[in-house]
Simulated scan of single mutants.
Amino acid sequence: MELPAVLWSLRMTPSRATGYTSFFMVYGSKAVLPTDLDYGAPRVRAYNEQGVEASLEDAMDQLDEARDVTFLHSTKYQQALHRYHERRLRGWAFNVGDLVLHLVQSNKNRHKLSPLWEGPYIVMEVLRPGTYKLKTIDGRVFANA
């Protein structure tokens, strides 16, 4: 019975990528909690039935602005994440004769327990940095290098 509480918590927590809650991104406003209704929170008391049309138009303008801000925030977040991961990458240079594994690119005839890498292969030739001609252990040239 804790699932609804966990889901509510996830929906009400602002995302690090966007800066807004998922509830706000879907509905365009902050959620009204049941306790806000019970105890008459200022937002609930300020609700006016006659001004709904005008406030709806204002909310739509704010939603468009919030989506623009979210897009910028998300882009900034992704760039920072990219810089973080780039910092941790190391370049690898292989020489002729090195043993390497090849990442399987095709998902054809594969399932979730299939290995991600195949090989080992021997580097036959360095075509340019990061591009190699490979051969199998028994000497056959690997076609998809």
Rank of each mutant, 00 (worst) to 15 (best):
T35K: 15
R87S: 12
K112L: 15
V141L: 09
R110D: 04
G97L: 03
T70V: 06
N95W: 02
Y27M: 12
A66L: 02
R87I: 05
D138H: 14
D38M: 15
K133V: 02
V52S: 13
K135V: 03
E57P: 02
T13V: 05
R11I: 06
F142S: 00
P4M: 04
D36V: 04
W92P: 00
K76F: 08
A41D: 11
Q62V: 08
V52L: 10
A54H: 05
F142Y: 06
A17I: 04
D61R: 15
F94P: 00
I137V: 11
E57A: 15
P4D: 04
N109M: 08
S106Q: 03
P34F: 12
V141Y: 06
A93G: 09
R16F: 12
L134F: 02
G91H: 06
W8M: 09
E49R: 14
R83T: 07
A143F: 03
L127T: 11
M1R: 12
Y77N: 04
H102R: 13
F142R: 00
G19H: 06
A5R: 10
Y47D: 03
R45N: 08
F94V: 01
S15G: 08
P42V: 09
K108Q: 06
L81S: 14
V32M: 07
I122W: 00
E2L: 14
L7M: 11
L56W: 11
N144L: 07
Y39K: 10
T18L: 01
K76I: 09
E49Y: 14
D138P: 03
H82R: 14
E57D: 13
G97V: 03
D36K: 06
N109P: 01
K135A: 05
G130W: 02
E49L: 15
Q78K: 12
V100Y: 01
M25A: 10
V100I: 05
T131V: 10
E57S: 15
D38G: 15
V26R: 13
V141P: 00
A143S: 11
H82G: 11
G139A: 01
Q50D: 10
H111N: 13
M1T: 10
R90A: 10
G19S: 06
H111W: 05
S106D: 03
W92E: 10
V6I: 13
N107D: 12
Q79H: 12
W117H: 03
W117M: 04
D36A: 11
Q62L: 13
H73V: 04
N107L: 11
M12C: 11
D64R: 15
L127D: 05
E86H: 10
G40K: 07
K133G: 01
D38R: 15
T131S: 05
V126D: 01
D38V: 15
R128A: 08
E57R: 15
R110Y: 04
N144F: 08
L134M: 04
F71V: 13
D98N: 07
L63G: 12
P129M: 06
D58R: 09
R110V: 04
W92D: 05
G130T: 02
V100F: 01
D98A: 03
K108P: 00
E53V: 13
P120W: 06
M25G: 06
S114K: 02
Y39C: 07
D64H: 15
E53H: 14
N48M: 08
M1G: 14
N109W: 07
R140N: 08
Y27A: 12
R128P: 00
E118M: 05
T18N: 01
